[in-house]
């Protein structure tokens, strides 16, 4: 019977289920805001209107762009350095012994301390900001990738050795495919961590970007604008996840299906 079939969970598209919790949250928020009627709890519709205002009349796009560039730069640096050092530490006992204590120290270094040190030592500039963010992310990438490098299949590496496959091909064809799940996990958690830290660092030492704007709105208790900026950024993160990370994951891990 078609009616009973469409009512079953299997018949509902994934996208609907994925967005159901989000819609429920918005609905509850809207009802509570209407009931409380206080400027310190703006309703979703008010936030949406503010978002529209900032998009058209304000500088949201500029600040969003600046922040995204910082996120992208820090992300690329953290992933490249983290993967390289992680593979090295996973494959070489000497490297692991050399850097392990340093890694533990870096893992536990508070983001704020890294940011302050960078701004003081490097200066209140873009380089310092990007490095400060990358420093916070690199140790977690290293830890992840090191696990992956330790779990590499020796038997497959031996195939490369026996047939004298060039090092670069071994890396590309044998090593990296085994690291993809670890790299993807690092990329996902990395993006989330990095954009949180970028905002703190913009608040601390930059005069543009979303973090800087949030700081200004905070001084005026402009909660509506704060939430509008947050919503804009959250939307971008959703788009990156849906259009970039998930398809990439499917492509790289397709052979498992």
């Amino acid at each position: 019977m078609p009616v009973a079939k469409s009512a079953m969970p299997g018949g509902v598209p994934d996208a609907v289920i994925r967005s159901a919790s989000l819609l429920a949250l918005l609905l509850i928020w809207q009802l509570v805001a209407l009931r409380v009627n206080d400027p310190l709890l703006p309703s979703p519709t008010a936030v949406l209107a503010s978002l529209f205002h900032h998009l058209t009349a304000g500088e949201l796009l500029h600040h969003l762009g600046v922040t995204l560039l910082r996120v992208a730069a820090s992300f690329v640096i953290a992933m490249v350095v983290g993967v390289a050092v992680g593979v090295w530490m996973g494959r070489s006992k000497l490297a692991n012994n050399l850097f392990d204590s340093l890694l533990v120290l870096m893992l536990n270094l508070p983001a704020l301390v890294a940011a302050i040190l960078c701004f003081i030592w490097i200066g209140l500039n873009e380089t310092a900001a990007v490095i400060a963010v990358a420093i916070n992310k690199i140790p977690t990438v290293i830890t992840n990738i090191r696990e992956g490098a330790r779990a590499l299949d020796q038997q497959l590496l031996q195939v490369g050795e026996v047939y004298r496959v060039p090092r670069i091909t071994v890396l590309r064809r044998i090593v990296l495919p085994q690291l993809y799940p670890y790299i993807m996990a690092s990329a996902r958690s990395g993006l989330a961590l990095i954009w949180k830290i970028v905002l703190v660092i913009e608040l601390l030492g930059r005069s543009d970007g979303i973090g800087f704007q949030l700081g200004s709105f905070f001084q005026f208790f402009d909660l509506t604008s704060i939430l509008a900026y947050t919503a804009a950024f959250a939307a971008v993160v959703f788009v990156i996840e849906a259009l970039l990370l998930r398809p990439l994951d499917r492509k790289l891990n397709g052979w498992r299906a």
Partner: peptide, 26 residues
């Protein structure tokens, strides 16, 4: 030039058969 056949086939599961062959002979 040494050809080596292991106890297990040891093909790379993420490469198709042609690419597995090209691994040793590009």
């Amino acid at each position: 030039r040494v050809g080596f056949v292991f106890q297990e086939p040891r093909l790379l599961p993420w490469l198709d058969v042609a690419d597995n062959l090209r691994l040793v002979q590009p």
